[in-house]
Amino acid sequence: MAAIEAEKLRRTYRQTSGFVRRRTKTIEAVRGIDFEVNEGELFGLLGPNGAGKTTTIKMLVTLLIPTSGAARVLGHDVVHSARTVRRNIGYVFGGDRGAYERLSGLDNLRYFSELYGVPPKVQKRRIPELLELVGLMGREKERVEGYSRGMKQRLHIARGLLHDPPVVVLDEPTIGLDPVGARELRNTIAELAQAGKTVLLTTHYMYEADALCDRIAVIAEGEIVAEGTPTALKSVVADRTVVEIEAYGLPAGALERVRASPGVTSVSVEEREHVQLLLVQAPKGLELTQQLLGCLGDVRVGRVAAREPTLEDAYVSLVTGS
């Protein structure tokens, strides 16, 4: 049996605006997705902001009712057996809100232990274990308002594990963390998977998914556009090469010229501080550099390099649909 199953899962939001004359607009956040996460698997849900990741997660952890379709956690329906699902799932969301800031981390954990129905005897053992796991031991008696962002995020993880759930769902847990904190957190997540838990992780950081996940589903505009192991996803672009060009101030129309250039399969631009980084994908073996520079006209160009595609390139290619 799969630990998590989603079947034609769909969710729309209705937005109303105006006070006197109310207008409603329906937004399709998740457009009927199917996926399965096996027991003990670390599964990544990857996608840009607004792709429907959080909406999917919230349906799985019973905070949202699907508009149509169904989802099951360990065989329990998320709508009809919501309480059973809640007992079996730990939910960790990113960001630094979600704790009672005036109280200590320990108080927060104790309170939520009660809400999860963890017996007092078990609490005495589990809370120190979790504090140790997330590296908050020694700081647990301080008020949460004094915690750093990373500490708050780790407190969330501890909270999500209080009832020792077989399934753990983490929604962008490393968002806004500094690189060191993010790496520590990834280690913790890997440990969870090693301990035999089923982990569903959402992120928009490619290397995070690449490093952690057994399998990945790429979600874009509410639909799953690809699913497979990181290696399998990379094979989408395995026959391509990536040309990176640094340009100082792209002139209007240059991007369109590059895109229309023969042989180019996909183009994306990353805005950096003073420079735009142009990423051009093309079939392997095609020598495009001169041709591309020609398209750019007389703009000042910095570093130019060709390299092997990464998971990120596969992702860009999938999300932009090329």
């Binding site: 919230k58 952890v61 019973t62 905070l63 309480r83 809640r86 007992r87 939910y91 969301f93 960001g95 809100r97 979600g98 704790a99 009672y100 800031e101 939520f112 809400l115 999860y116 129905g117 909270r159």
Partner: peptide, 11 residues
């Protein structure tokens, strides 16, 4: 506080 969802998500 952002705790409402955390509470509702408990059994």
């Amino acid at each position: 506080y952002g705790t409402l969802e955390a509470i509702v998500g408990t059994p």
